[in-house]
Design a protein around this nucleic acid. Sequence first.
DNA 1: GCGCTGATGTTGTTTTATAAGATGATGAGG
DNA 2: CCTCATCATCTTATAAAACAACATCAGCGC
Lengths: 160, 160
Amino acid sequence: MPISTHAEHDHQKCVNHALTIAEHLCLKRGVQLTLIRHQVLALIWENHKAVKAYELLERLKPLKNAAKPATVYRALDFLIAQGLIHRIESLNAFIGCRCSEHQHEQLLLICKYCHEVEERTATNVMLALSDELKQASFVAHSKAIEIHGICRTCATPPKA
Amino acid sequence: MPISTHAEHDHQKCVNHALTIAEHLCLKRGVQLTLIRHQVLALIWENHKAVKAYELLERLKPLKNAAKPATVYRALDFLIAQGLIHRIESLNAFIGCRCSEHQHEQLLLICKYCHEVEERTATNVMLALSDELKQASFVAHSKAIEIHGICRTCATPPKA
DNA sequence: GCGCTGATGTTGTTTTATAAGATGATGAGG
DNA sequence: CCTCATCATCTTATAAAACAACATCAGCGC
Ligand SMILES: [Zn+2]
Ligand SMILES: [Zn+2]
Ligand SMILES: [Zn+2]
Ligand SMILES: [Zn+2]
């Protein structure tokens, strides 16, 4: 079972971008990105892997001594409501959203080896889906499209 | 909030069909559709609504005095492995599969009012998805496509 | 009978998530 | 300054969902 991480990249940029967008968005919307919420968001963005609520709780405790399940779940609820993170239904886990600045529907590709999650807009899939829903006369309110498998990086044998 | 049921139909036919297919399939595969497993499958097929594990447990108890969580979860594991039911990740619930006789990928339309679940093959969506996965160099092992919203029946005001 | 296998029984625990009521901070209106 | 409303948080329990581990049993081939 290969263990791998996605191609090296300047992850600090990912983090800074995500947090900056979040701050701007919350300011614009007049909602409070409080310290706790900011901390939880930052923890989620520590990497590109799906993270569980109780895992976040453990990581939050050093920063926030009194942290309890409700602390984390409330922050998660807020972040989801603001579209800053996505919940991965099939894992009971969470992942930072890479495109929270514009409303979108997404497809999540979840690697069973490295647990990294790739978010894709997949316009063609969404178009086909809209069509299908129309045929079914079904009015969609939310869509969970979660694909489990092996990502590019984990499929590629390490360079010889 | 409208409460509605899907168009009346001879549901006994649905049940008989599902159970007959299940029996044949298990026979063919040399696996045992034991009493408990049969009972759980029948309970799932009582209607077309998503059903939760502990709800099944309650319904199983009158038939099977000693039923415990493990009893139900083991039966569910078996039924899923045989493709006789689907797990709905976003609800922690289960639904009978309408087309277990042939391998398939499906889309689940879940009505937030009546909780009925419609399973669709949606070839076009799956084609677009395959294409997208190819582009992403992602090898899929399993796909969960779950759409929540309002079904045809619940959207249609009762006949005047 | 014996031993293998798959299924079930039994007990307890872990993981995930929420309920409900108290407390605290902030800001608007009087 | 005081009061009230609002939103966020704290705190304590509990609910809901799932699984682990080990004992037992039933069927079957030999
Ligand atoms: Zn990054
Ligand atoms: Zn997103
Ligand atoms: Zn199916
Ligand atoms: Zn409906």
